[in-house]
Design a protein around this nucleic acid. Structure first.
Lengths: 344, 344
DNA sequence: ATGAAAGCGCTAACAG
DNA sequence: CTGTTAGCGCTTTCAT
């Protein structure tokens, strides 16, 4: 029996995988000392440490963090669930998270859901199986099951890009209803009267922007025409299709609030293609503050939100919480800003 | 001693973490049977299986895949290293990878490097610590150390978006030199004589496109002016800055090949802003086939590459290899296509 | 400052 | 079809 065990070991070693014990033998110390060199180097004598580091280098040892987690119950991993990897706005959030988390020694793992709550639940479940120390989600809408799993997991959870009174744990985001409302007021102040909203049916954040938008118009002008899109893989195509639908169903529309800058850019491009002038024939405003909003002609009026700041704050909450410290607040509103350009 | 062990166990269970053994007890079976229900359900009697699944559901059990890996030596994880999460062209690759990998039961983990080889090495090292079953890299340029670690790890590695004669393991990509050459010929055929190239200094793929481009011009027209950018976080800003530099240093330039569509879009926007007509005053062509190439005015002439296909093929190579089957070829060229639009 | 023993949650191998 | 045993590579705890 022992014998068999030994043989398996020998085979493994021969197959190329270097274990902590191999490093220990090379350095003439115990595995324990190697472990200490890796985690608490100051607790090891200078000379020993140097020998161990030399052995690590020589053998190209890569510690198995999976085993490390199992023994220590800390994975040093933060999991991030994103709707899509292609949206530049989320890229800022990722950058903010990464820079703050890196310095604290955490690794960021990403999954994407293609804007499907079912896919999100699957991603969350898969992630929980990897035992991350914390999880960051996009939005505040999740399957009941996903929320339950998250709560039971006991790890810190940060929901982002929206706000809610009933967070799973912590929230860093902006007031989407408020942003929609502000954009509605903005249009009305400027005399637009025949309005439309173009967004996605599947995203709560988009629907919240509509809610605020409609509320701002209520009692002042007619209800906005609402055009909803499902597929978000080709954002500009969808934006073009949305403005097409608006123009067809309500030809006298004088302004459209589009729920994301990428869609809005697609809408502006489509208008140019068909000779519809922006903002003279139709005004267009977006949401997000993507790079393209500054570059496109006409410049895109938009409700700007700092994705970077969301990422940084989320990281900060997580690091604080994992350090066992108390939080000043569980819900952080990063705000938004209506940036006026030529499109509306 | 035993006593202590038991106490720890009890505490853990009380603290909320559900283990396989808890499920087993709830269902009145052994842990092994629970494990089988999870991995080989057809090997378990219908009634037993149902009881076990019921217990899993009831206790909200989430299997610890970390421990599973440790015991089975298979993590069911494929790691993907991307330069940036915001580039829509990589999004297609991710989508292609995900759809093929999901169905084979693999989970995709992502890291990003911000176009830094050092960051890439760090990401690879961190990933290897999580013991993925395979790894997908972007490009064929890596630190010597990173390549060595990858080779020693023994896992399947796919390099993407470029080709090389000396792959770490497998490659799925396109001929960047060839694409640059084709674009050079395209410009020359159309009578452009004063050319420029705008790309990134840090990306080998960009430099390869330049290499082919310059080769196509050699002996026919003057050498192209080369403008290099370093920072890639704000692609459109960089594209605008690049065209600005071209116009300043070589005012009579009649055509620019820009190494990526996002940069090229930024260049076109900048031209519009300053009243430079595209293509009349200056022609612009890009690389990639991003969504914006079809939408922007004028439409962007570009060397189109199917990012989706790269992802799908990479997944296919990995799945085949992990199934222990032999590969028909280790190097796959997905090709490119010059798509003519109005910008050049 | 260093080492030895025990165990983290799971699966492989074998037995029945 | 189901259970038992041993061990994956690491860290914790305790001892020296």
């Amino acid at each position: 029996m022992r014998q068999t065990g030994m043989k398996v070991r020998a085979n493994r070693a021969a197959s190329g995988r270097v274990r902590m014990l191999d490093v220990a033998r090379e350095a003439g110390v115990s595995a324990q000392t190697v472990s200490r060199v890796l985690r608490l180097p100051e607790k090891v004598a200078e000379a020993t440490r140097r020998r161990v580091l030399g052995a690590i280098e020589k053998l190209n040892y890569v510690p198995d963090l999976t085993a490390s987690y199992l023994a220590s119950n800390r994975s040093r991993v933060v999991a991030l669930v994103l709707p899509s990897v292609s949206m530049s706005i989320f890229a800022d959030t990722v950058a903010g998270l990464t820079s703050s988390l890196d310095s604290a020694g955490y690794q960021l793992l990403l999954a994407h859901t293609d804007y499907s709550l079912d896919d999100e639940e699957a991603a969350i479940r898969a992630f929980l199986g990897r035992r991350p120390d914390a999880m960051v989600l996009t939005g505040v809408e999740h399957s009941a099951r996903a929320e339950e799993l998250l709560r039971l997991s006991g790890i810190p959870v940060v929901q982002t890009w929206a706000l809610t009174d009933n967070p799973i744990d912590m929230v860093v985001g902006c007031d989407n209803v408020g942003a929609g409302f502000a954009m509605g007021e903005y249009f009305i102040e400027r005399g637009y009267r025949r309005l439309a909203f173009a967004g996605t049916n599947t995203e709560l954040r988009s629907r919240q922007r509509l809610e605020g938008f409609a509320r701002a118009l209520a009692g002042k002008v007619a209800e906005p025409l609402v055009v909803g899109r499902e597929d978000l893989t080709r954002q500009m195509d969808e934006g073009a299709a949305a403005v097409d639908e608006v123009l067809r169903r309500q030809p006298d529309t004088d302004a459209v609030f589009v729920a994301s800058d990428a869609l809005a850019a697609g809408a502006i491009f489509e208008c140019r293609r068909r000779g519809v002038r922006v903002p003279d024939d139709i005004a267009i405003a977006g949401f997000g503050g993507y790079e393209i909003a500054r570059h496109i002609t006409p410049g895109l009026t938009t409700a700007e939100v700092s994705g970077r700041r969301i990422g940084e704050l989320a990281a900060q909450l997580i690091v604080t919480r994992l350090a066992g410290k108390a939080l000043e607040q569980d819900v952080v509103d990063v705000g938004f800003r209506i940036v006026q350009r030529d499109s509306a």
